[in-house]
Amino acid sequence: MIVFVSCIILFLIGLYAVVTKRNLIKIAIGFALIEYAINLFFALVGFKRGALAPIITRLDTPHNFVDPIPQALVLTAIVIALGTTALMLTIILRIYSHYKTFDIAEIKKLRG
């Protein structure tokens, strides 16, 4: 139970960074934290203590198997997160070359 709660805490730390930080790079780090928290949560959903890897073997007694689907999903989610993070950092760099600052309070051509 404690690992699930710590996932949620990690999620909230990331959300805190996204909402309150003024530095663009720190916002990107906040998103990375949120993604880690969700991926960790997903991987833990499929985990069982003492269970075997989900490969069909010639076992005579019934055994517990780890659920393989969350691992496949996490793999997909990591790839998507990679795409978003790369795009976000690219946009941040382009913003920096226009404004010469990472401070979100000074980037305000759009209002209203």
Partner: peptide
Amino acid sequence: VGAEELEASF
């Protein structure tokens, strides 16, 4: 990739 487009996109 103008300043406004980037800001809006972010």
